[in-house]
Design a protein around this nucleic acid. Structure first.
Ligand SMILES: [Mn+2]
Ligand SMILES: [Mn+2]
Ligand SMILES: [Mn+2]
Ligand SMILES: [Mn+2]
Lengths: 222, 222
DNA sequence: ATAATTTTTTAGACTTGTCTAAAAATAGTT
DNA sequence: AACTATTTTTAGACAAGTCTAAAAAATTAT
């Protein structure tokens, strides 16, 4: 029962998985097309193929969701993606905004020994450079209690633990503003006019727009 | 002038390169087909495509050779292949007979930063686990003066530096017989009947068949 | 030199993944 | 309920890479 999927098929499973996670309901053809920068008609074709292989549940016009097997594969690809990202940053001198593109390629390399060997070499990291949890070899991963920074109220204190947007542009902005994962922050003021925030980060007062605060994850305080 | 080749195209270039190296003349369609476990007709099709891209010199019915650009790409893929093999053995606990299959996948990952970062991480290794030289980032590599062990005469002393056959079966045989790269050997006796050899390896007397001795490379003594 | 054999190329077909254009189904609006 | 707009699916085509079967060229043998 060893099915060998193409990179394309794996990418579809990953896309469906991540879209399902945010909405928690059947994923639409158009959403998948947008995510994979392809056309809706191509998506329909591929969905049929994946349904044939029992990797997705598909009812015409009703959207698609992953089966157990499909979810397992999607998570395994995500595991590889994130492990490689850790490797690139820790050992090859990549910046956190440079790793994604390469990890998109490395995630499709098929070798259980490679994946688990890499995991061990990295000492079983639990988060990738963007703060996303890394599934273990059985597909289990930490479900963190997080919110976006923009949801905090004046006076709240928390810790920055991840990014929602991991585009190179956003990550470079954060580098520039010296906002790193793991730092403690305090919300000094919320401007009701434009919803910008004044933060205290490591003794520094920094003002950030809502665009920024809504793309930063902080630890949920409770 | 950035051409983006498919994995298949890269594999053809690599095959043509390695076949050319042994014969030093235009490579035949059938040889390529055999090497890549495909059909001659498929090879002809692909050769035309590569000729179109100026990666090979092709004259109908006369075989094929690499252009400068084609050779450059082939060597670059080989560089990646061998660097990954070193990584897998040194850092992920792979045996030397397990690395090839995975390296066949990793060699197609495209990122200059990745390749050069890996090279630096490994401290610029000059040989892969099978004793094959690793091209540097400019495509230059050591041309060693080597012969097959079977060519040595009685009384000759040398050092084992590589394997000609790198099949898992052969490599496992070597592991079992405790024949490793880098060890000094002395030819005690050559049996004229079956061309087997009696060797002295690290104080041990070992007899090997011609099948074995003709697949081991030793340093040329002069 | 001619015939037989082998190698290489061509012709036509198939699969995967994609596309555009058009049809069908669904959702939203009056 | 009927019309409109949007979403999704189908139909047909294309490029990449492969295959089988047959034709053409090159090589080897007689
Ligand atoms: Mn990523
Ligand atoms: Mn990531
Ligand atoms: Mn190899
Ligand atoms: Mn090797």
């Amino acid at each position: 029962m060893e099915l060998d999927l193409s990179q394309t098929e794996e990418n579809y499973l990953k896309a469906i998985y991540s879209l399902f996670v945010v909405s928690n309901k059947a994923v639409s053809t158009n959403k998948i097309a947008e995510k994979l920068a392809t056309k809706a008609s191509s998506v329909t074709d591929m969905i049929k193929k994946l349904a044939e292989k029992d990797l997705v549940n598909y009812v015409k016009y009703q959207g698609v969701s992953l089966t157990g097997k499909g979810k397992e594969i999607a998570i395994h690809v995500i595991r590889k993606h994130r492990l490689w990202e850790v490797f690139l940053v820790r050992h090859l001198g990549f910046q956190w905004d440079e790793v994604h593109e390469v990890a998109e390629q490395l995630e499709h390399v098929k070798s259980v020994k490679l994946t688990n060997g890499l995991d061990a070499f990295l000492d079983f990291p639990r988060y990738d450079p963007h703060g996303d949890p890394i599934p273990d070899k059985d597909g289990n991963f930490i479900k963190r209690n997080i919110t976006v920074l923009s949801a905090l109220k004046e006076g709240d204190e928390s810790k920055i633990v991840g990014v929602k947007d991991s585009s190179s542009a956003f990550l470079k902005y954060l580098d520039n503003a010296e906002i790193k994962l793991g730092v403690e922050i305090k919300v000094l003021h919320k401007e009701s006019f434009d919803h910008s925030m004044m933060l205290l980060i490591e003794g520094q007062k920094i003002s950030i727009s809502q665009q920024i605060s809504s793309n930063l994850y902080v630890k949920q305080n409770d």
